[in-house]
């Protein structure tokens, strides 16, 4: 018997030689890998901070509140970008929340396991579609076939089509986070509700959804954060490359914070221009970073509240 020839003794179990070295090395290597994420966070802050400071300390504050965002001409109207981001995000949520939440409730409370088995990968396929693809789809299909048919005044590039595109992109995100939240509601709550003679719709709307509400709020916040940070759909479908007048008309072209950063970097070989043009890119980047960071921290709170509860 091979086992009999290698009796286990204390010597074999002692942590010596190569085993000890491997153990120590492994610990340090794994720690360094994890610590790298703090370094990356520092790199992001560092790469934004220097040029943002140059911009904030040198910019003429009157140029931050003008008629539009034309960085190459020294007009840095920040409200154009914030309102543009806000409008596309609102449109996106009007698309993503009903569809994503509906799909989530269906998968978590109604669907048979066999249906769910098909539906979940389908949503994952949708989640895997790159945003450039949805940008092209928004420009060549949603804009002419949907938006311009419904609203005769819409231009080819418009914020409504871009917002719908962003919304489609966030459907799987809303669906998967909400579904997780509802599936983590214990079955005892549902059984108690059915035991009282409640119908399925009452159980879902009056028991499961209220019990999962923290997770659903988290889903909404994460989706808003993702929609604000989405670049390519707006860059391709909302037009306004280079600059945009202040506009609240979703049927016309517009510019978001993300698209402003991208369009400033695209088209020219070097990111240059009048005075602080280059630095304005970092200023908008910092604004975007802080805004999404805030939303993510709030969403994280809500997600953890669900975990603690059940």
């Amino acid at each position: 018997m091979p086992l009999a020839r290698t009796p286990v003794n204390l010597e074999a179990l002692r942590l010596t030689g190569r085993r000890a070295v491997a153990e120590t090395l492994g610990r340090y290597a794994f720690f360094s890998a994890a610590f790298f994420s703090i370094i990356v966070s520092g790199m992001i802050v560092w790469s934004l901070a220097a040029e943002t400071w140059t911009f904030v300390s040198q910019v003429d504050y009157s140029t931050l509140w003008t008629d539009g965002w034309f960085p190459r001409r020294g007009m840095y109207d920040i409200k154009t970008l914030v309102v543009g981001s806000l409008l596309t995000t609102i449109v996106a949520m009007l698309v993503a929340v009903p569809l994503g939440l509906g799909a989530a409730i269906y998968m978590s409370e109604y669907a048979k396991p066999s249906v769910r088995k098909v539906l979940k990968p389908t949503l994952e396929v949708l989640a895997g579609i790159p945003s450039v693809v949805l940008g092209f789809f928004a420009l060549t299909f949603i804009s002419p076939e949907v938006v311009q048919r419904l609203f005769s005044g819409a231009t080819q590039f418009n914020m409504l089509a871009a917002g719908i595109g962003v919304g489609i992109l966030t459907i799987p995100l809303v669906a998967s986070v909400s579904e997780d939240a509802m599936r983590s509601v214990p079955d005892t709550l549902r059984e108690a509700s059915y035991g009282m003679g409640a119908r399925r719709v009452s159980t879902v709307l009056r028991v499961v959804v209220p019990a999962a509400v923290s997770g659903l709020v988290a889903a909404l916040i994460i989706a808003i954060s993702r929609a604000i940070g989405e670049t390519m759909v707006v860059f391709i479908a909302a037009g306004a490359t280079g600059g945009s007048l202040f506009s609240v008309d979703v049927l016309g072209p517009g510019q978001t914070m993300t698209a402003a950063i991208a369009s400033q970097a695209a088209g020219t070989d070097q990111v240059v221009g009048e005075g602080l043009t280059f630095q304005s890119l970092f200023f908008v980047g910092s604004l975007l970073f802080l805004l999404t960071l805030l939303l993510n921290l709030v969403a994280d709170r809500f997600v953890r509240r669900v975990r603690q509860k059940y």
Binding site: L48, S225, G229, T231, L281, L288, F289, L293, L295
Partner: peptide, 9 residues
Amino acid sequence: GVPSVVYGI
């Protein structure tokens, strides 16, 4: 959760 365009920066 950081937007991809910020990673670009």
